[in-house]
């Protein structure tokens, strides 16, 4: 990484940028819960098991989006460690 375009100083905008990656996470959480909720409701209405799959859907959506959040955080942390040469965090 000889031609790293990141400026040498830890100037403000890059740290804002690091936080800004997570600016849409709330919408993702809501979106995936709603998606699985409606999918569960659809299944319920098809096979008449209300409200089993609706409830399952809500928790699946919540768990899945938290897992997705966790994965992206871990990936960012790994990248950050790589960028700093595996040295001090």
């Amino acid at each position: 990484m000889s031609n790293n375009p990141r400026p040498s100083s830890d100037s403000d905008p890059s740290s804002i940028g690091a936080a800004a990656k997570y600016a849409g996470l709330g919408f993702q959480l809501v979106g995936s819960i709603l998606l699985f909720l409606y999918a569960g409701r659809w299944v319920d209405r098809r096979i008449g098991t209300e409200p089993l799959f609706l409830l399952l859907g809500v928790f699946t959506g919540l768990a899945a989006s938290i897992y997705s959040m966790y994965r992206s955080l871990m990936a960012d942390q790994r990248r950050e460690a790589e960028r700093q040469g595996g040295g001090t965090r």
Partner: peptide
């Protein structure tokens, strides 16, 4: 389970 979540993201 995860593909729809990734797409929504």
């Amino acid at each position: 389970i995860m593909s729809p979540v990734e797409m929504i993201g």
